[in-house]
């Protein structure tokens, strides 16, 4: 592995800050920096998808068609009462088996053995996901996508909770007025309800964002090589036999670094979300908007 700094060629002779800068830029450490990228990628994909799921769930719960309403209500209620972590562990296996089962039905219609044989889940080799012959990166990407989908489903249920509350918070008179003007159900929903609900949804959604940040280390439990994985790997005792940078058990310090990383991340998010919120409340007929107006005057 080529070192980043030229003076890193002989680690044994280094001391202090030079040693540390060489140590922190070894090839293995690039793994943990990449995994921070993984966390950000997870957030970047999960947040919009979960918001979409949540919106779909909340709208479904308001549907006039009963089965759809039941589905929506069931989805919003699913995350209450049961630890979320159980959902994470459940969905990753369940989704995997679901996809393989669908592919199995499509690709191997002649297969006559049952899929569940005692303690095994058997599908035909062509239906395996990813295929047994696929390269390593396909396996990793598939694992990551499953994790993202799982996060999106669970957080979509949270978001559905928030959004259905926000939809109920829009003054009813607004909807009645819209109907009095002759708008159809659909028009009332899209032109009156949806544009107004966001102000009510924002506090809940920003709370959800904070929670989502704090849930990202759970990726580790879903089998993704994330920051927790790397912190454990890199922090473990290294003897001189296997590395040019031997050290004792430093896992404590690695997790302290992660702790500080997350504290910083939440702090920055807090500041940004406060800015957005005060921007959005400007001119709104709410208590916060009134307070802003008075402060300016």
């Amino acid at each position: 592995m080529a070192a980043i700094f030229s003076f890193c060629s002989d680690p044994a002779s280094l001391e202090g800050i030079e040693w540390l800068s060489c140590y922190l830029t070894t090839g293995k450490h690039l793994g943990i920096y990449w995994s921070i990228g993984t966390v950000l990628l997870l957030l970047a994909i999960t947040a919009p998808v979960a918001l979409f799921f949540g919106f779909a769930g909340a709208s479904a719960a308001r549907s006039r068609i009963l089965p759809i309403a039941w589905f929506g209500k069931g989805y919003t209620a699913i995350v209450r009462g049961v630890p979320d972590i159980a959902f994470f562990l459940f969905f990753v296996i369940a989704l995997d088996q679901f996809f393989e089962w669908i592919r199995h039905e499509v690709k191997c219609p002649d297969w006559d053995m049952p899929i569940r044989q005692g303690n095994d889940f058997v599908v035909c080799p062509e239906a395996k996901l990813p295929l047994g012959t696929a390269p390593q990166w396909v396996h990793e990407t598939y694992g990551f996508s499953l994790a993202v989908l799982t996060f999106a489903i669970v957080f979509g249920a949270f978001a559905a909770n928030v959004l259905s509350g926000a939809m109920r918070a829009v003054p009813h008179a607004q909807l009645e007025t819209a109907e009095a003007y002759g708008m159809t159900q659909r028009q009332t929903f899209w032109r009156v309800l949806v544009p107004q609900m966001w102000v009510y949804a924002l506090p809940g959604l920003s709370n959800l964002w904070m929670v989502l940040i704090k849930a990202t280390p759970l990726l580790f439990l879903l089998g993704v090589e994330d920051i927790v994985y790397w912190a454990r790997e890199l922090g473990a005792t290294k003897t001189a036999k296997f590395t040019e940078y031997p050290h004792g058990d430093w896992r404590m310090w690695y997790f302290l670094a992660l702790l500080v990383f997350y504290l910083g991340f939440t702090k920055v998010s807090e500041v940004v979300l406060d800015k957005i919120m005060s921007r959005l409340t400007r001119g709104q007929a709410t208590a916060a908007g009134e307070a802003q107006r008075k402060a300016a005057a």
Binding site: I213, T216, A231, R232, G235, F255, L259, Y262, T266
Partner: peptide
């Protein structure tokens, strides 16, 4: 500190600190 960081990381950090 306790509300701003994930409980999962707190557990790991505490465990390895206690080990040291």
């Amino acid at each position: 500190v306790f509300r701003g960081s994930p409980l999962f990381i707190q557990f790991f950090f505490a465990y390895f600190t206690f080990q040291s």
